[in-house]
Nucleic acid binder design. Sequence first.
RNA 1: GUCCCCAUCGUCUAGUCAGGUCCAGGACAUCGGCCUUUCACGCCGACAACACCGGUUCAAAUCCGGUUGGGGACGCCA
Length: 495
Amino acid sequence: MTETRLRFPPSPTGYLHIGGARTALFNWLYAKKTGGKLILRIEDTDTERSTQDSIQGILDGLNWLGIDWDEGPYFQTEFSTDHLAAANQMLAEGKAYKCFCTKEELEARKEAAMAAKQEMGYNGACRNLTPEQVAEKESAGLPFVIRFKVPERNGMLGYDDKVLGRIEHSYNEVDDFVIVRSNGKPLYLLCNVVDDIRDRITHVLRGQDHMTNTTRQVLLYEALGAPMPVFAHMPLTLDLKKAKISKRSHGEIVAVHFYKEHGFIPWAFCNFLVLLGWSPGDDTEIFSREELIEAFTLERINKSNSIFNYRKGDEKFFTDPKAIAINEQYLRTMDIGEIGDMVQKVLEKEGLWNAAYAGEKKEWYLHTLALIRDRFHTLNDFATLGRAYFADDFQVEQKPLEKNLLKFPDLKEWLPLLADRYQALEQFTTEETERVAKELAEEKEVKPGVIVNGMRTVVTGQLAGPSMYDILMTLGRDKVVQRLRNVNRFFQQAD
RNA sequence: GUCCCCAUCGUCUAGUCAGGUCCAGGACAUCGGCCUUUCACGCCGACAACACCGGUUCAAAUCCGGUUGGGGACGCCA
C-alpha cells in the first residue's frame, strides 16, 4: 500500500473562505486518517489576480484553524517548465495541437451559438490543420494556443468518484480545451495535473464545481501516461438563497478571519465546518481532533449541497446559529486552562490583561472564567460582557440600568449603606454577604430581588450573570464596596 | 441551449447501497415547562420533513421510470 498523498491547492486571489477552509479540512482529515501527507500548493498561475496578501491570508487562516501540512507551500508558477514540457510532449505525440483561432473569432462564434440557442463549445476549426498549414501560419507570426485533442472514441469517458459513484460523458461531448495560452503560459487544467503527477497525489478531494474539470483531466492523465488518482467531489456550500457562497457577494461573513476576529475557538469552527457535508452516521456531533480523524471517511461525505444558514441583519445570530451553538458548547466544556490561554489573547488585545493572571492570580483568573463562561457565545464576550471582572471602566447596559436601578430611587441610599455593612463584615463570604443583603431587604421592606438586582447592575453592568454572591467573592470586597458606594453616578447621569 | 450532479423537519443531518424493526431518529433554531430571587447551563416536553406522478412488490423514504425543483459546468480563470 503506497502512502496516501493529498493536496490543498488554493489560488491566491482573496482571503481563505469557509468553502476553501472546509476543502482543506477534509483533505487534512483524510491525510491524517490514512497516515498520509498533505501538500499545500499555491496555484498562482493567474498572475493577474494573484496577490501576496492573499497568500499570507490563506496561510494565516490555515494556521488559525490548526490545519498543518507536510510539504509546501509549493508555488505553481515555479514549475512552468514541467507544464510546458508536458504540453510539448503531447504536441509531439499528436495528442495536442496548435490552434490559431483568435479570441475575437471564438467570441463571435460563441455569441452566434448563444443567439441560435445551440451548443457553444469549440468547433475544432484548427484540429485538422495539415503540418504545412501550421507551418505557414507560424511563419506568418500568428499567435496560437495549444489545445488538447480529445480522442474520437465511441465508449464513455469517465471516472469512479468516491462520493458520487461512476461519472460518465461521451467523448464527443468534450471540446478540445486549451492547455497553453497564446502568451506561452500554461493553464490550470494542465498545471494542476502535471503538479499532481509530480507530487504523486493519490487522492483528489475537491468541490463538485470541479466535476467537468475532472472529466477533462482524466484525459490528460491518460495522455501523459500517468496513473489516475482517486477522485472525490464534495458538495458545495450555498447560501440561504441557494447561491454559491462567495467573497464577492457575501463579504467578511464567509471569511475565515472573520471567525478568528469574532472570538471563535478554532477547533469548534472546524467541528462546525466538517458537519457541513459530512456526518459520522451516528448522532455524534462534537468531536475532539483525534475522534474526528478516527471517524472521518470519504464514503460518508454527502452528495447534496448544504446551506450556510446565515441571515443578513439577524440581531441574535450574527452567523449560522449552529456554528455559534457549537462554539458555545466548546466554550463551556473545554479544559479551563485552554480557555484561559485563548481568553488571554482577547484580553491582551483589549488592554485588559494583567501579567499576574499567569502568575500569582492564575487561580483567580481561571476560577473567574469558569464562573462566567456558561453565558458566553464567543471568546470576545469575556472582554465585553465580562469586562467588569477585569476592569473598572465597564459600561452598564441600558436595560438593567432602567429596570433594576433607576426604577428604585431608594437604591441610591441603600446600596452605599450595604457597602458600609460589607465593609464592616468580619468575614466576607457568600453566606455573610447574602445574610446582610437579605437583612437589608427586610429592613427596607422590599423583596431581596430589588437589592440583589440593583447590586448586580452596579457591580457587573449586566442584567444577567452568575450567582450574585459568587460574583462578590470573585470581585473581592474592595471592588464591591467601591462600586456600591459609587451608585450615585448613575442617578446623576439619568437626571 | 448542451452536459453533469442532487432532492428527508426552517437549517445541518440519520435512515436509501443489502425494501419490512420508520405513521421517519438526532442536533441547531423556535415555543412551552422544571430548576434559578437574575440570566444562562442542565433536564423534560411541543412544533416540524420523505418534492410530485406512475411502476415493481404482500410491503417503498428506500428499487425503477418520468415530471418538477435546485445546483454545477460549458473561459487564452482557478
